[in-house]
Amino acid sequence: MMRRLCLQLLFTFTLFLSGCASNGDGKTERFALLKETNPKPMDIIDATDSKIGDEEAVKKEVIKNDHIYDVVIVKNGKEMLVAYKIKHMHRFQMKQVEKKLTKDLNKKFEGIHFIVSSDYKIFLEAVRLNKLLRENEIPREEAKKEFKQIVELKEEKT
Protein backbone atom coordinates (compact mmCIF):
# COMPACT_ATOMS: atom_id res chain seq x y z
CA MET A 1 0.00 0.00 0.00
CA MET A 2 2.71 2.42 1.10
CA ARG A 3 4.96 1.45 -1.80
CA ARG A 4 2.11 2.06 -4.25
CA LEU A 5 1.49 5.46 -2.69
CA CYS A 6 5.19 6.36 -2.97
CA LEU A 7 5.24 5.28 -6.62
CA GLN A 8 2.13 7.35 -7.34
CA LEU A 9 3.72 10.37 -5.67
CA LEU A 10 6.93 9.90 -7.64
CA PHE A 11 4.99 9.53 -10.88
CA THR A 12 2.96 12.71 -10.20
CA PHE A 13 6.09 14.65 -9.35
CA THR A 14 7.91 13.42 -12.49
CA LEU A 15 4.86 14.31 -14.60
CA PHE A 16 4.83 17.77 -13.03
CA LEU A 17 8.54 18.26 -13.78
CA SER A 18 8.31 16.96 -17.35
CA GLY A 19 5.43 19.34 -18.06
CA CYS A 20 7.82 22.23 -17.84
CA ALA A 21 10.44 20.67 -20.09
CA SER A 22 9.19 22.39 -23.24
CA ASN A 23 9.67 25.86 -21.79
CA GLY A 24 13.40 26.04 -22.59
CA ASP A 25 13.88 26.77 -26.26
CA GLY A 26 17.66 26.26 -26.44
CA LYS A 27 19.48 22.99 -26.07
CA THR A 28 23.07 23.94 -25.36
CA GLU A 29 22.28 26.33 -22.54
CA ARG A 30 20.57 23.49 -20.71
CA PHE A 31 23.98 22.05 -19.90
CA ALA A 32 25.72 25.39 -19.57
CA LEU A 33 25.82 25.06 -15.79
CA LEU A 34 27.47 21.67 -15.90
CA LYS A 35 29.84 22.12 -18.82
CA GLU A 36 32.32 24.82 -19.63
CA THR A 37 30.97 26.85 -22.58
CA ASN A 38 33.29 29.82 -23.09
CA PRO A 39 31.48 31.11 -26.22
CA LYS A 40 32.83 33.87 -28.44
CA PRO A 41 31.70 37.35 -27.38
CA MET A 42 28.79 38.66 -29.44
CA ASP A 43 27.65 42.14 -30.32
CA ILE A 44 23.92 42.72 -30.86
CA ILE A 45 24.61 45.64 -33.20
CA ASP A 46 26.88 43.63 -35.52
CA ALA A 47 25.10 40.32 -34.86
CA THR A 48 28.21 38.50 -36.05
CA ASP A 49 31.21 37.06 -34.25
CA SER A 50 32.93 40.07 -32.85
CA LYS A 51 36.20 41.17 -34.30
CA ILE A 52 39.23 41.50 -32.08
CA GLY A 53 38.18 44.53 -30.11
CA ASP A 54 36.74 45.50 -26.80
CA GLU A 55 34.80 42.29 -26.27
CA GLU A 56 37.78 40.00 -26.82
CA ALA A 57 39.97 42.21 -24.66
CA VAL A 58 37.33 42.20 -21.92
CA LYS A 59 37.03 38.43 -22.11
CA LYS A 60 40.79 38.01 -21.83
CA GLU A 61 40.81 40.36 -18.86
CA VAL A 62 38.00 38.48 -17.09
CA ILE A 63 39.34 34.97 -17.70
CA LYS A 64 42.70 36.08 -16.25
CA ASN A 65 40.99 36.14 -12.84
CA ASP A 66 41.94 33.06 -10.78
CA HIS A 67 38.43 32.64 -9.36
CA ILE A 68 36.70 32.50 -12.75
CA TYR A 69 36.62 29.64 -15.27
CA ASP A 70 33.83 30.36 -17.77
CA VAL A 71 32.81 33.67 -19.32
CA VAL A 72 30.09 34.78 -21.71
CA ILE A 73 29.95 38.29 -23.11
CA VAL A 74 27.12 40.03 -24.94
CA LYS A 75 27.47 43.63 -26.07
CA ASN A 76 24.64 46.01 -26.80
CA GLY A 77 25.91 49.40 -27.90
CA LYS A 78 27.75 50.88 -24.97
CA GLU A 79 26.46 48.27 -22.57
CA MET A 80 28.32 45.03 -22.05
CA LEU A 81 26.96 42.04 -20.17
CA VAL A 82 29.70 39.97 -18.56
CA ALA A 83 28.41 36.76 -17.00
CA TYR A 84 30.82 34.24 -15.56
CA LYS A 85 31.07 31.13 -13.43
CA ILE A 86 33.16 31.07 -10.28
CA LYS A 87 35.15 28.02 -9.20
CA HIS A 88 33.11 26.15 -6.62
CA MET A 89 35.37 26.60 -3.62
CA HIS A 90 35.79 30.28 -4.45
CA ARG A 91 32.06 31.00 -4.24
CA PHE A 92 32.54 32.40 -0.73
CA GLN A 93 34.31 35.37 -2.31
CA MET A 94 31.63 35.91 -4.97
CA LYS A 95 30.68 39.43 -3.90
CA GLN A 96 34.27 40.61 -3.60
CA VAL A 97 35.16 39.14 -7.00
CA GLU A 98 32.18 40.88 -8.63
CA LYS A 99 33.03 44.19 -7.01
CA LYS A 100 36.71 44.02 -7.92
CA LEU A 101 36.01 42.87 -11.47
CA THR A 102 33.50 45.68 -12.10
CA LYS A 103 35.98 48.21 -10.73
CA ASP A 104 38.86 46.87 -12.83
CA LEU A 105 36.80 46.72 -16.03
CA ASN A 106 35.44 50.23 -15.55
CA LYS A 107 38.98 51.47 -15.02
CA LYS A 108 40.46 49.67 -18.04
CA PHE A 109 37.65 50.14 -20.54
CA GLU A 110 36.27 53.61 -20.12
CA GLY A 111 33.03 54.55 -21.87
CA ILE A 112 31.49 51.10 -21.58
CA HIS A 113 28.79 50.36 -19.04
CA PHE A 114 29.48 46.91 -17.60
CA ILE A 115 26.81 44.63 -16.19
CA VAL A 116 28.82 42.04 -14.30
CA SER A 117 27.20 38.99 -12.76
CA SER A 118 28.04 35.53 -11.49
CA ASP A 119 24.39 34.51 -11.21
CA TYR A 120 23.56 31.16 -12.84
CA LYS A 121 20.33 32.40 -14.35
CA ILE A 122 22.00 35.41 -15.93
CA PHE A 123 24.78 33.15 -17.21
CA LEU A 124 22.26 30.75 -18.76
CA GLU A 125 20.29 33.53 -20.40
CA ALA A 126 23.46 35.19 -21.67
CA VAL A 127 24.68 31.89 -23.20
CA ARG A 128 21.28 31.45 -24.86
CA LEU A 129 21.27 34.98 -26.28
CA ASN A 130 24.88 34.61 -27.38
CA LYS A 131 24.03 31.40 -29.23
CA LEU A 132 20.96 32.92 -30.91
CA LEU A 133 23.06 35.86 -32.08
CA ARG A 134 25.85 33.62 -33.32
CA GLU A 135 23.44 31.57 -35.38
CA ASN A 136 21.53 34.63 -36.58
CA GLU A 137 18.31 33.24 -35.20
CA ILE A 138 17.09 36.38 -33.52
CA PRO A 139 16.18 39.80 -34.96
CA ARG A 140 18.17 42.73 -33.60
CA GLU A 141 15.19 44.39 -31.90
CA GLU A 142 14.23 41.19 -30.13
CA ALA A 143 17.81 40.64 -29.06
CA LYS A 144 17.86 44.12 -27.55
CA LYS A 145 14.65 43.35 -25.71
CA GLU A 146 16.10 40.10 -24.34
CA PHE A 147 19.28 41.92 -23.33
CA LYS A 148 17.17 44.40 -21.38
CA GLN A 149 15.28 41.58 -19.69
CA ILE A 150 18.53 39.94 -18.58
CA VAL A 151 19.74 43.24 -17.15
CA GLU A 152 16.44 43.59 -15.30
CA LEU A 153 16.93 40.11 -13.82
CA LYS A 154 20.08 41.36 -12.15
CA GLU A 155 18.17 44.12 -10.39
CA GLU A 156 15.59 41.73 -8.89
CA LYS A 157 16.06 41.15 -5.19
CA THR A 158 13.03 39.20 -4.01
Binding site: C20, D119, Y120, K121, L124, K154, E156, K157, T158
Partner: peptide, 17 residues
Protein backbone atom coordinates in the same frame (compact mmCIF):
# COMPACT_ATOMS: atom_id res chain seq x y z
CA UNK B 1 16.25 25.52 -7.05
CA UNK B 2 18.09 24.57 -10.27
CA UNK B 3 14.75 23.45 -11.69
CA UNK B 4 13.30 26.92 -10.95
CA UNK B 5 16.38 28.63 -12.39
CA UNK B 6 16.23 26.55 -15.59
CA UNK B 7 12.53 26.68 -16.32
CA UNK B 8 11.31 29.87 -14.67
CA UNK B 9 12.56 33.42 -14.38
CA UNK B 10 14.25 33.05 -11.01
CA UNK B 11 17.80 34.10 -10.32
CA UNK B 12 20.03 32.77 -7.54
CA UNK B 13 18.93 35.80 -5.52
CA UNK B 14 15.21 35.11 -5.89
CA UNK B 15 15.06 31.32 -6.09
CA UNK B 16 15.19 30.82 -2.31
CA UNK B 17 11.51 31.63 -1.69
Amino acid sequence: SYFYIYFFNFTEQTVGN
